[in-house]
Nucleic acid binder design. Structure first.
Length: 421
DNA sequence: TCTGGGGTCCTAGGACCC
DNA sequence: TCTGGGGTCCTAGGACCC
């Protein structure tokens, strides 16, 4: 039997903020989404006060003040940096690590004599070396690990580590787990299952009619069911696969009415995705541009549109991608609209050495490639956006987001590094 | 005033081909 | 009444995750 462990950081973004603000330990903390839109991470204390996941900040602002909840804008450069520290530490403790997301990793602990003890040791070491508290779920499949971890977080009496390696424990835990808390089952699928009388994870696991499950929940649903039965459908994947799509989009801090500002926002997003495209050594065949007004605002003309531009020859050249994106914008731009969000997505990615050239379109020649490389190098060394395309404009404030509660870049900027008194 | 951003996977159905 | 059959490829949209 395989023994997998899921290591999941507790309230990750909030606890990243606490690393450099130890006085916030045991204090309710929340972290807001971009634009200070809504709460996306909450500590145990904040949850206990009743702050909901995704709660719009403007609705809970007063409540936070009244209850002394520490509020932070999201500081992603800090979080990704601390995430890599956690992952690095995990790799020292286990040779097989799949980084599943910024705050989660699956480990293969098969063959280790006492996995539960080992998991407790991992939790202790991560806490000591990175100051990030984690919960760990042990089980024979990823799906069961998720359930184990759910319990480890919910019920502190287990000390943050729960094992579902034993069939008896699986029955017990799944029997108490509401169906919609299961990994891969959210509201939509949860509702369909409840129609069949399936209320708990155990009901789902033991439901006999697999054809019906396949029909209602597609192949994925049946795989989740198999995973609960101890059959591995999602093995650990060790090599980091290249992304199949890359996107960059943002809600504007202020509404945008003019085409110039909108173009600059689009160009900036295009610049962003092109840089990431090159960093994974891919090229793209399509660019999608989209814009929309503010769906939450009444009494304005609502508008949303997207359009795809195609390259005859795939490219990773920032200027070509920006040019194509701006062409697309021409098609969907409409005067008189109060724009609130815009974004660029690149699709049909492939390896940069794999494509065939097209006779009728200029391909990226060596000089262009050298230019991109130089640009990437400067931006890597001197900070992103040190050099950029002029079409990105110079006045980001016209469309950039609001971040009124941001902590310093403690770990990624020399100017903001913490000082000892 | 004010409601995030970035991804993946799957399926149905249309278009097209022979 | 009744209008082939089988295959592939592509796309849009739904659902979900973190």
């Amino acid at each position: 039997m395989s023994v997998y462990a899921l290591v999941d950081c507790d309230s990750f973004y909030c606890n990243c903020e606490r690393v450099f603000r130890p006085e916030l330990r045991n204090v309710p903390v929340i972290v807001l989404s971009n634009n200070d839109g809504c709460a996306i991470s909450r500590t145990r204390e904040a949850k206990a006060l009743g702050v909901e996941m995704g709660a719009p900040f403007f609705k809970i602002r007063d409540f936070c003040k009244k209850n002394n909840i520490a509020v932070f804008s999201s500081n992603f450069s800090l979080y990704t940096n601390l995430s890599s520290r956690v992952m690095r530490t995990l790799r020292k403790l286990s040779p097989i690590v799949e980084v599943y997301s910024v705050d989660e990793a699956f480990l293969d602990l098969s063959g280790i004599p006492n996995p539960l003890e080992y998991a407790r040791m991992i939790k202790e070491v991560i806490g000591r070396e990175t100051k990030i508290p984690v919960s760990i779920g042990l089980a024979p499949t990823k799906g069961l690990c998720k359930a184990a971890c759910f319990l480890a977080k919910k019920d502190r009496s287990h000390g943050g580590v729960v094992s579902l390696l034993d069939k008896y424990d699986q029955d017990e835990v799944l029997g108490k787990m509401p169906i919609e808390k299961l990994w891969g089952i959210a509201r939509g699928r949860g509702l369909s299952l409840k129609m069949l009388g399936i209320k708990t994870a155990k009901d789902f696991r033991d439901y006999k009619n697999v054809h019906l499950i396949q029909k209602i929940l597609t192949k994925v649903g049946r795989q989740i069911q198999d995973e609960l039965r101890g059959i591995v459908c999602f093995p650990l994947s060790l090599e980091t696969e290249k992304k199949k799509e890359i996107m960059s989009s943002r809600t504007f801090g202020h509404s945008v009415y003019d085409k110039k500002t909108l173009s600059e926002a689009i160009a900036s997003h295009a610049f962003e995705v092109a840089e990431e495209l090159r960093s994974q050594k891919s090229v793209c065949k399509e660019v999608l541009v989209y814009v929309r007004s503010n769906p939450h605002k009444e009494n304005i003309e609502q508008y949303g549109a997207s359009v795809v531009g195609k390259f005859l020859t795939p490219t990773s050249n920032s200027f070509k991608i920006i040019e194509k994106a701006l062409e697309c914008l021409e098609d969907i731009w409409r005067p008189g609209i109060e724009f609130k969000k815009a974004g660029v997505r690149i699709m049909k990615l492939q390896d940069n050495c794999e494509y065939t050239l097209n006779m009728f379109e200029a391909h990226d020649d060596l000089r262009e490639e050298a230019l991109m490389k130089t640009m990437d190098l400067i931006n890597f060394r001197e900070g992103s956006r040190t050099v950029k395309s002029m079409s990105c404009g110079t006045n980001e404030f016209a469309w950039c987001m609001n971040r009124n509660h941001c902590s310093p870049k403690y770990t990624t900027s020399w100017h903001q590094i913490p000082k000892c008194k």
